[in-house]
Design a protein around this nucleic acid. Sequence first.
DNA 1: CCTGATTCCTACTAAATAAGTCGGGTTATC
DNA 2: GATAACCCGACTTATTTAGTAGGAATCAGG
Lengths: 132, 132
Amino acid sequence: MRLSARTQYALRAAVELAAAPGGPVPAERISVAQRIPRRFLDNILLQLRRAGLIHSQRGPDGGYWLARPATEISLADIILVIEGVAQENERFPGVSEPLEKVLGALREHQDSLLSEITLAHVAAGSLPNLSR
Amino acid sequence: MRLSARTQYALRAAVELAAAPGGPVPAERISVAQRIPRRFLDNILLQLRRAGLIHSQRGPDGGYWLARPATEISLADIILVIEGVAQENERFPGVSEPLEKVLGALREHQDSLLSEITLAHVAAGSLPNLSR
DNA sequence: CCTGATTCCTACTAAATAAGTCGGGTTATC
DNA sequence: GATAACCCGACTTATTTAGTAGGAATCAGG
């Protein structure tokens, strides 16, 4: 489970939005709260917006907010947007073929866990049972 | 679960050794069976040997073999040697802190699964129950 | 003791990815 | 029109990845 800095920042920014009351949150505030380099953050938020996960508003009192309720955005949603869809492994020849099943199982477990946990869970600090 | 080509090759090579009867297996045979670029494979096998996972013998009829029974080398053993030990994430500030627990749980599940599966399992094609 | 098969070892390179940075444009409010 | 914010593409620098190159050392058989 290696997440790039970019992906981690995206998750953290999204959680920050989930934790904010109602209105637009300016990037500057996220940057400070989560210690994310400002210009880099802009970049990431832009990507999240283009993917439709968040909305934005320019001008004074502008900022970003979640496009859907925090209970309906999973960590997997964010990660998918940032990392893109992973391309398949090529086949493993001969005796090493069963390795494919192992890696597949790993990936599935990961996906299922990350799809279950929402921004609301994280922001509230009340995670569902993690041991499955 | 992103495994570099190098790591995947290492796993495949190790499985190939686990599947071989007794004596030394020359790198050339592994290279062909697993479609791994020859010089690159040399390099990887060297690393596995230095880590003590395999032994080698030079000269005609030389080659590589496992240093321990295949039942006692886990996939995690191989991966650890190739990837090295992952350094910790820095802390997640404020509301994003619970993310640490999520990522930790993910990593633990992975480690436990990969530590349970041995080269013998893979080579025999009889994997233990993967859904835990 | 020579030949060929094989491993051993360091160093190098080209391409991709990661982690940001930069410069300025656009939109909204007061 | 000043100010606060987002918008956007391009650029830069460092690291990692995926190998390749060149040759030295070792060993068995004849």
